[in-house]
Nucleic acid binder design. Structure first.
Length: 653
RNA sequence: GCCGGUUUAGCUCAGCUGGUAGAGCAACCGCCUUGUAAGCGGUAGGUCGGGGGUUCGACUCCCUCAACCGGCACCA
């Protein structure tokens, strides 16, 4: 006998080996009918599973949020069956649930195209209408392999081989179509419902390895209800509207062109945004960092010393001069900063030495990786290197952390995750060094989380560290919930050694400093792109390339409009004037479309009264204020967040 | 880099099975002096991504290169 605890707390005894379906049926046929799976101690399981030990049992209905992954997983199986029915000879491989949907990878000589979708979706509906039960059986490794081998499913044979010894090998049968799967599944294919859609096709390497064959992947999504699917598709459209590449063009911020793949042509407006970012970062660094600038092009020998020549060369732009010297355009700033450190003798009194640079680096990224501002081949890092002693390391990491988190907050990124990546298999340095560094960083990580008041979550990525040292990665979450890894703090054991760096310690001995690489925004280009999408182009005033547009209603107000313009500019505001011979409705629409934050509308009345009619982006409200009052408020609002803080402090002092 | 798709006017996009291109918006020129998301009329604008081939003839078919898009892989 075994005891099961129901969600209402009731405990009941059952024969060992009773199935979830039997229990549900015993309670009521309607419960059985609406139940698609069960959860034992919170873990989803097939309803037909035999229960062998005491547990908390819940019956999961189709509209239970936990059923969503089952719906998607079942949809993947249905997709596979449909594809094999339509395209005999297609091999099936894997079909997992992913965020927002599922996919299935197929091996087929001719890849699928979206044009195949209607036929496949139709067939899927047929499979779903058949409503065949999912039934599971355990098979032996040999039987499983024979089964798939006979069907010509070579990839499945490989998958069976990959299942660790001792783990059960399970077949799920859905009306004669059988797939290898660890489950669980719902009770029948009919439970998938009709709120599904195939989304896109893609190539994907078998097991993610470029040496393996390329499979053809079909992505799809599925929801419990049609409304959910529609809401999801709507949300996709919304995300598309904030695509920084689209906004970049619409708002005249930047462009790319064929002759410069992966390099940005910043237009005046985009460059203004970029410069505001840099200026902000400079102010944030002023207290603790020395800003430097290392050369763009350096002799090959330096890159040999740093090790880049061995492990990074394929990503470097290399150039040979007339006299046969080989130079590389810097892909990173560290070797340059090390030269600056090494120039002249350093004492322990100089440490920690923090060298910052808005360094333009160039990396030959694979063509397929390029993506607007988010992945480019030449970009500006808000880079810095901290040279310190072993004892200073923890404090430096914490100091960097504070800066990073506070910067993110100024851009409205409230949530942030810090991940500690620990030693990878391939690495330099002794185990003792790693033990020590990881130990320090773990303590720092704990402290970060403890001090954040719940704002910062932390986690550990085992084995994901750089080969030269462990690192923190800062992941921020944008306005529509997407995560972006931007900041990083990396401890480096390798470079100080390789370059023979040292400082003179108290005792007059030479010591090797600890080196920390850190970036906050990471790539300023990429960060700009993230900001564009985060704000959907609707920048806060301090970042907006053009803050104010003075727009006239009639040409009779032209000279007053010019006065308004001059006055705004005198006060340091970025303002333009629109004297075009157009209706005010036209001008309003025009400037709204390019996300201009503040419209100051002036007509005969305003000119006579020396006022402005203010209309803000995103609202159709208008307010008429005296010119000076309006400008004073805008000046205040346009002050960057760090300067606003400084003013508050000053006022308090 | 790999798989698939795309590339036509500044932008968004038409152009059936081969007979040398069209719309809307923008631009420019007029008219209108305008009250908070598109006033009216006119004009101009394209080596149809580059190169090669097939053909009497190519935006259309084939090859090739490039860029871009979606994934994969990569992302110190």
């Amino acid at each position: 006998m075994l005891t099961l605890t129901f969600p209402d707390g009731a405990k009941r005894q059952f024969e060992r080996g009773v199935s979830g379906a039997e229990i549900a049926k015993g309670i009521s046929p309607s419960l059985l009918k609406r139940t698609v799976a069960m959860a034992l101690d919170g873990n989803l399981a097939d309803l037909s599973d035999k229960i062998t030990h005491d547990a908390k049992i819940e019956f999961v209905a189709r509209d239970d949020p936990r059923a969503l992954e089952l719906i998607r997983h079942d949809a993947a199986h249905v997709l596979a069956e449909a594809v094999q029915e339509l395209y005999p000879g297609t091999q099936v491989t894997i079909g997992p649930v992913i965020e927002n949907g599922f996919y299935y990878d197929f091996a087929r000589n001719q890849p699928f195209t979206p044009e195949d979708f209607p036929a496949i979706e139709k067939k899927m509906r047929e499979v779903i209408a058949r409503d065949k039960p999912f039934s599971k059986r355990e098979v032996s490794r040999e039987d499983a392999k024979t089964f798939f081998r006979n069907k010509g499913e070579n990839f499945k044979v490989e998958l069976v081989d990959a299942i660790p010894e001792g783990e059960p090998i399970k077949f799920y049968d859905q009306g004669g179509w059988i797939d290898l799967c660890r489950g669980p599944h719902m009770t029948s294919t009919g439970k998938v419902g009709d709120a599904f859609k195939l989304m896109k096709v893609a190539g994907a390497y078998w097991r993610g390895d470029p040496k393996n064959p390329m499979l053809t992947r079909i992505y799809g999504t599925a929801f419990a209800k049609r409304e959910d699917l529609e809401a999801y598709l709507k949300q996709m459209e919304e995300a598309e509207k904030r695509d920084h590449r689209r906004l970049g063009r619409e708002m005249d911020l930047f462009h790319f062109q064929e002759e410069g793949p992966g390099v940005v042509f910043w237009h005046a407006k985009g460059w203004t945004l970029f410069q505001q970012l840099i200026a902000y970062m400079r102010r944030r660094l002023a207290r603790d960092y020395q800003e430097v600038n290392a050369p763009q092009i350096l002799d090959k020998s330096l890159w040999e010393t740093s090790g880049h020549w061995d492990w990074y060369r394929e990503h470097m732009f290399v150039t040979k001069t007339e006299d046969d010297r080989v130079f590389a355009i810097k892909p990173m700033n560290c070797p340059g900063h090390i030269q600056i450190f090494k120039h002249g003798l350093k004492s322990y009194r100089d440490l920690p030495l923090r060298l910052a640079e808005f360094g333009a680096v160039s990396r030959y990224e694979p063509s397929g990786a390029l993506h607007g501002l988010l992945r480019v081949r030449a970009f500006t890092q808000d880079d810095a290197h901290v040279f310190c002693t072993e004892e200073q390391l923890a404090a430096e990491c914490l100091k960097i952390n504070e800066l990073i988190v506070s910067v993110y907050k100024d851009f409205g990124f409230e949530e942030c995750v810090v991940k500690l990546s620990t030693r990878p298999a391939k690495r330099v340095g002794t185990d003792a060094m790693w033990d020590h560094a990881e130990d320090v960083m773990r303590r720092v990580l704990d402290e970060i989380e403890a001090k954040s008041g719940g704002r910062i979550k932390t986690s550990i990525n085992p084995g994901e560290g750089a080969f030269y040292g462990p690192k923190f990665e800062y992941v921020l979450r944008d306005a529509i919930g997407r995560d972006w890894q931007c900041g990083t703090t990396q401890v480096d054991f390798a470079l100080p050694e390789r370059f023979g760096m040292f400082y003179i310690d108290h005792d007059g001995q030479k010591k090797t400093p600890v080196m920390v690489h850190r970036a906050i925004c990471g790539s300023m280009e990429r960060f700009s792109g993230i900001l564009i999408e985060h704000y959907a182009g609707h920048f806060p005033l301090w970042l907006a390339p053009v803050q104010i547009m003075v727009a006239t209603i009639t040409s009779e107000a032209d000279s007053y409009a010019n006065e308004v313009l001059a006055s705004a500019r005198d006060k340091g505001l970025r303002a333009e004037v629109d004297l075009r011979n157009e209706k005010i409705t036209y001008k309003v629409r025009d400037h709204s479309l390019v996300k201009l934050p503040v419209l100051l509308v002036v007509g005969k009345k305003e000119a006579a009264e020396r006022t402005v009619s203010i209309r803000r982006l995103g609202s159709s409200e208008t307010r008429t204020l005296p010119l000076d009052t309006a400008l004073a408020a805008l000046v205040e609002e346009a002050r960057p967040p760090d300067l606003q803080r400084a003013e508050v402090l000053e006022a308090a002092a």
